[in-house]
Amino acid sequence: MVEAFADLSLRAGEIILDIRARGAAVMEKADHSPVTEADRRAEALILAGLAEACPGVPVVAEEAASAGHVPATLGDHFILVDPLDGTREFIAGRPDFTVNIALIERGSPIAGVVYAPMRRTLWAASGHHAWSADVQDDGTLGDARGLVCRGWQAPPCIVASVSHRTPETDEFIARFDGATMSAIGSSLKFCLLAEGEADLYPRYGRTMEWDTAAGDAVLRAAGGVTITLDEKPLVYGKRNQANDVDFANPFFISASREGVSRIKGEVRGTAR
Score class of each variant (00 low, 15 high):
residue 1 M to V: 09
residue 8 L to Y: 15
residue 10 L to T: 12
residue 11 R to Y: 10
residue 14 E to F: 14
residue 17 L to N: 09
residue 17 L to Y: 10
residue 17 L to M: 12
residue 18 D to A: 12
residue 22 R to H: 11
residue 31 D to A: 00
residue 38 A to V: 15
residue 38 A to D: 14
residue 40 R to A: 03
residue 44 A to P: 00
residue 47 L to K: 01
residue 52 E to R: 12
residue 53 A to C: 14
residue 53 A to W: 15
residue 57 V to M: 02
residue 58 P to M: 04
residue 63 E to K: 07
residue 64 A to Y: 05
residue 65 A to K: 09
residue 65 A to T: 06
residue 67 A to R: 10
residue 68 G to F: 08
residue 71 P to L: 01
residue 73 T to C: 12
residue 75 G to P: 07
residue 77 H to G: 00
residue 77 H to M: 02
residue 78 F to V: 08
residue 79 I to C: 11
residue 79 I to F: 11
residue 80 L to P: 15
residue 82 D to T: 15
residue 83 P to F: 10
residue 83 P to W: 07
residue 85 D to Q: 07
residue 88 R to I: 03
residue 90 F to G: 02
residue 90 F to C: 00
residue 93 G to S: 06
residue 93 G to P: 02
residue 99 V to I: 03
residue 104 I to V: 05
residue 104 I to L: 06
residue 113 V to C: 09
residue 119 R to A: 00
residue 121 T to D: 06
residue 122 L to Q: 14
residue 124 A to Y: 11
residue 128 H to A: 13
residue 131 W to G: 07
residue 133 A to P: 15
residue 136 Q to M: 13
residue 138 D to Q: 04
residue 141 L to F: 04
residue 143 D to I: 05
residue 145 R to K: 13
residue 145 R to M: 08
residue 150 R to A: 06
residue 153 Q to F: 08
residue 159 V to R: 13
residue 159 V to G: 13
residue 162 V to F: 13
residue 165 R to Y: 07
residue 172 F to D: 00
residue 172 F to M: 06
residue 174 A to R: 00
residue 175 R to Q: 05
residue 178 G to P: 08
residue 179 A to R: 03
residue 179 A to S: 01
residue 181 M to D: 08
residue 184 I to F: 02
residue 187 S to I: 01
residue 188 L to Q: 12
residue 191 C to E: 04
residue 193 L to I: 07
residue 193 L to V: 07
residue 193 L to R: 06
residue 196 G to E: 07
residue 201 Y to W: 04
residue 203 R to L: 04
residue 203 R to T: 12
residue 203 R to C: 12
residue 207 T to S: 10
residue 208 M to K: 08
residue 209 E to V: 08
residue 220 R to Q: 15
residue 221 A to L: 09
residue 222 A to F: 07
residue 224 G to E: 03
residue 226 T to L: 01
residue 229 L to A: 05
residue 230 D to S: 05
residue 233 P to G: 11
residue 233 P to A: 07
residue 240 N to E: 09
residue 241 Q to E: 04
residue 242 A to C: 12
residue 243 N to M: 03
residue 243 N to D: 06
residue 244 D to M: 07
residue 249 N to T: 08
residue 252 F to V: 08
residue 252 F to H: 10
residue 257 R to Q: 14
residue 258 E to S: 03
residue 263 I to S: 00
residue 266 E to D: 07
residue 269 G to N: 15
residue 270 T to N: 14
residue 272 R to I: 06
